[in-house]
Write a protein that binds this DNA or RNA. Sequence first.
DNA 1: TGGATGATGGCCT
DNA 2: GGCCATCATCCAA
Length: 206
Amino acid sequence: MKNSYEPLHRDFFMQSTIDLAQALLGCTLVKITNEGTAAGYIVETEAYMGPMDRAAHSHQNRRTKRTEIMFAEAGHVYTYLMHTHCLVNVVSSDKEKPEAVLIRAVEPVAGMELMFKRRGMTDIKNLTNGPGKLTKSLGISMEDYGRVLWEPPIFISNGISPHSISQGKRIGINNTGEAKDYPWRFWITENPFVSRHQIESKKPVI
DNA sequence: TGGATGATGGCCT
DNA sequence: GGCCATCATCCAA
């Protein structure tokens, strides 16, 4: 395990949301707490495109206490609660443009013991292969809401270069009309830690 | 102020 | 695949 990680510069986040969603693949997501450091390579992301995207919380510029941080500068942390789980997003695009990238899965890299302890299990394949699982493993919570990702205790660092990137429909947004079919999910091809290996349509898409 | 909602996960059959 | 725990947030009234 590395002793320290170097955060990427804030300029890294200044690219289009679709580009950022892919650029984040292979990067290391690091969280430091008083329990220790935990980190993972980002292997799966989804882009949420703001006002025009019915699946986005910021659809039609909906601006509430929850979505407020989506309107901030790129590189802020947008965490929110889904049932009993915390999900983490990277705010993207310009100020006042509420776009974000959801981190859906990481590959464990450092702090494995701590992650297992937090999750209360020992199966590495199920440790961080989902948006709620990775936040619990890394110790990411609502306390991280509004933090910036270019300095500790939560930040993005260099990692690996994906050999190949796959693209498909986003997951879990089946009540959002056409938006459910937009191909804004990205993952490292054949990485064993992605949340789902393929999405099948039960009915043919016309 | 209350009821509906959900970018999930774990357990069940 | 189905069921549902469980709770902050949101919005209608």
